[in-house]
């Protein structure tokens, strides 16, 4: 810690709040500051004020509209996408009994698929090359994982896409299965991977049907990323 990092001096403490908000503190300084931050409302206010000051760096940037595919991925992942007409039940009012039965059958079939939904603690959106969402992978703390096909690009003829968990401890990659081209699939993360999986890389490779026989003979990587925690604890 440098000599001017003295949290007992109000002036230096306020300066440290600025450096904390800016992100320039060393790990030790940050840890010391956060222990104070967790108990002091004054220090919390200092950090909030500094964040307001520093936001001036964002305000000088010229806004740039993102491509439409980004919103599509968000709407799908949050479940806020506009429902297709045949899922809006109001439309079935006034139809004949036969048509209604048919509608009910369709709705029930769809509901069976929806019942597979689960509580999600982590999410990973697998984008197509044009950034539109291909698959959405949701996972819970308990290791339940649900892969939903949104609109994946078709892989090369005779090929499939395989999802892998790449732990950082040097263990060989663990296959989570072949990604479905439509619908969804459930995967259970084995117990021995439970602690590490939220911070592990997820990789999608192009494979022959049946997938790679072992993690050491994987095909070319199409996409790599990590889960995003959907809880608030890592947000600010």
């Amino acid at each position: 810690m440098h000599e001017s990092f003295d949290l007992s001096d109000p002036h230096l403490r306020e300066a440290a709040a600025g450096e904390y908000a800016l992100g320039t503190l060393t790990r030790d300084e940050r840890a010391a500051f956060e222990s104070l931050l967790s108990v002091s409302h004054d220090v919390q206010r200092d950090v909030e004020r500094w964040r307001e000051h520093l936001n001036v760096f964002n305000e000088q940037l010229t806004p740039i509209a993102p491509p439409a595919s980004v919103w599509k991925g968000i709407a799908e992942a949050t479940g806020t996408a506009r429902q297709p007409w045949w899922r809006r039940l109001g439309l079935w009012q006034g139809m004949t009994a036969t048509a209604f039965s048919l509608a009910l059958a369709v709705t029930l079939t769809f509901s069976l698929g929806q019942n597979e939904s689960m509580e999600s603690d982590y999410v990973f959106v697998v984008s197509n090359p044009d950034s539109s969402p291909g698959w959405i992978v949701n996972a819970s703390h308990s290791g339940e994982m649900m892969v939903q096909a949104v609109s994946p690009n078709a892989p090369a003829p005779g090929k499939v896409c395989e999802l892998w968990l790449m732990t950082k401890d040097g263990e060989k990659p663990m296959s989570l299965g072949i990604l479905p081209h439509s619908g969804s699939m459930k995967v259970e993360v084995p117990k021995e991977y439970l602690a590490a999986f939220p911070d592990s890389d997820l990789v999608i490779t192009l494979e022959n049907p049946g997938g790679a026989p072992s993690g050491k003979q994987m095909g070319p990587t199409l996409k790599k990323g990590q889960f995003t925690a959907v809880e608030g604890r890592h947000i600010l």
């Binding site: 993102p66 491509p67 980004v70 968000i74 949050t78 999410v123 959106v125 984008s127 959907v230 600010l236």
Partner: peptide
Amino acid sequence: ASAQDCLQQVYIRIWAAAGQ
């Protein structure tokens, strides 16, 4: 592409954490 991936993550988190 990375910015677009992160932008999706941002709004997914907003949806989950706006109550905070």
